[in-house]
Amino acid sequence: MIMHPAVKLRHIRAFLDIAVEGSLSAVARRQGITQPALSRTLAELETLLATPLFRREKRRLVLTEQGALFRRHASIGLQAFEAGAAALHPGAPGSTIRVGVLPTAATRLFPRVALRFREIAPETVLAIETGPHSYLVGLLREGAIDLMLGRMPVASEMAGLVFAHLYEEEITLVARGDHPLRGEPVAQLLARVPVLLPPATAIIRRAVDDYLMTFNLAGLQPAFETVALPVGRAILLGSDAVWFISRGVVADDLDRGDLCEISTGARFLSGAVGLTKRQGGPAVPGLDLLERLTKESSDRQN
């Protein structure tokens, strides 16, 4: 079946915005149109495609199976149109690169890259998205971001993606700099103080769980689960808690002495950090430059 020639870009943009917001009213406000007008646009698209794209669950619009399939292709198609238009006027104001940055690179590496990129290509906007690993991988697959910087996806997530290795990074156990039990054996320490673990959705959680199993602590009940630096740091500085976290997240705090590392004695608590993007994705002006600067900065850092 060939797509109906009456499908316009306004239909596609409206559909993609509704898929993100799950609400007609929110999208209508942002686009400066009435909700009935937006509803008509969506109805037109569903009629032209001859399939329902959303179903209503309580007060939200949720993609149908057909809608989710169409969203993946529509996102990539729209991105290709935008990249093609930008390529006609390289360096023109309004060019945007969308980057997903995981916590391991958000504190030190990527801010340095972003500032250097700004010096070289001030006309291009870096739109930076943060969030859990699975969330950013989803955005990458849908074409909502052009590049992801962080831990390497697991094998089951790599279909259609390509990963460029930058460096290996440790998962470390940290506490406040003057922690009274910092010299205790790890197993005893973990049994005596509150423990912060990465959430179950974090890609480093499995490695931490494997490590805890070596101490017969597989069922350890954490006091908190987070990879967010502001929350984790504040909890550590205000208590005797300890935190398993990627070293890059807390590197600056360790350098200042606000936090200290507690030796785990484990070599396998590490993993690959790098750049992930879609295979065969459309060319995005400035993306090659951003990738090169990231590689250069990581080489200097490591």
Rank of each mutant, 00 (worst) to 15 (best):
Arg247Ile: 11
Ala200Cys: 06
Ser95Met: 08
Val27Phe: 00
Glu225Ser: 12
Glu169Asn: 12
Pro5Phe: 07
His179Glu: 00
Ser297Ile: 14
Glu65Ile: 14
Leu69Asn: 12
Ala228His: 13
Leu287Arg: 06
Glu65Phe: 08
Asp299Ser: 11
Pro153Gln: 06
Lys277Asn: 08
Ile2Gly: 00
Thr214Val: 08
Ala50Met: 10
Pro36Thr: 08
Asp146Val: 09
Glu129Gln: 14
Gln79Ile: 11
Gly274Gln: 04
Arg205Thr: 13
Thr51Lys: 07
Phe117Gln: 09
Ile18Glu: 00
Ile245Gln: 04
Asp258Thr: 12
Pro153Cys: 09
Leu102Trp: 05
Ile262Lys: 05
Arg72Glu: 13
Leu149Arg: 08
Glu57Gly: 04
Ile12Pro: 00
Glu170Lys: 14
Arg256Cys: 07
Glu57Val: 14
Ala43Glu: 12
Ser263Ile: 05
Ala19Phe: 00
Pro185His: 06
Leu236Lys: 07
Ile97Thr: 05
Ile2Glu: 02
Val99Gln: 04
Ala127Gly: 02
Leu139Pro: 01
Met152Ala: 12
Ala87Tyr: 14
Ala223Thr: 11
Ala83Asn: 14
Val208Leu: 03
Thr214Trp: 02
Leu69Glu: 10
Arg292Cys: 05
Arg267His: 09
Gly238Lys: 06
Ala85Glu: 13
Ala80Cys: 00
Ser23Asp: 07
Leu161Lys: 07
Leu78Val: 02
Val227Leu: 12
Glu129Met: 10
Gly177Arg: 05
Ser75Asp: 07
Asp146Asn: 12
Pro122Lys: 14
Glu296Ile: 04
Ile97Lys: 08
Glu21Cys: 02
Glu296Tyr: 01
Ile120Gly: 08
Lys8Gln: 13
Glu291Tyr: 02
Arg98Asp: 05
Phe215Glu: 06
Leu275Met: 13
Val174Cys: 03
Asp210Ala: 15
Leu290Lys: 08
Pro111Ser: 12
Gly265Tyr: 06
Ile33Pro: 00
Val7Trp: 00
Val27Thr: 09
Gly94Ala: 08
Leu88Phe: 13
Thr264Pro: 00
Leu48Arg: 10
Asp17Gly: 09
His133Asp: 07
Thr34Glu: 09
Phe244Gln: 10
Met213Val: 13
Thr172Gly: 03
Thr124Cys: 12
Ser298Arg: 05
Glu119Cys: 15
Lys8Trp: 05
Arg176Cys: 00
Glu119Met: 14
Val284Asn: 01
Glu169Ser: 15
Ala191Gln: 10
Leu290Arg: 04
Arg71Gly: 02
Ala80Leu: 08
Gly248Ile: 12
Thr96Phe: 00
Pro93Glu: 10
Pro122Tyr: 11
Ser134Gln: 15
Met152Cys: 10
Glu184Leu: 11
Leu189Tyr: 07
Glu142Pro: 02
Val99Asp: 04
Gly143Pro: 02
Ile203Thr: 15
Asp258Val: 09
Val242Gln: 05
Ser134Asp: 15
Met148Val: 15
Ile76Val: 13
Leu190Gly: 02
Leu16Tyr: 04
Glu169Trp: 01
Gly271Asn: 04
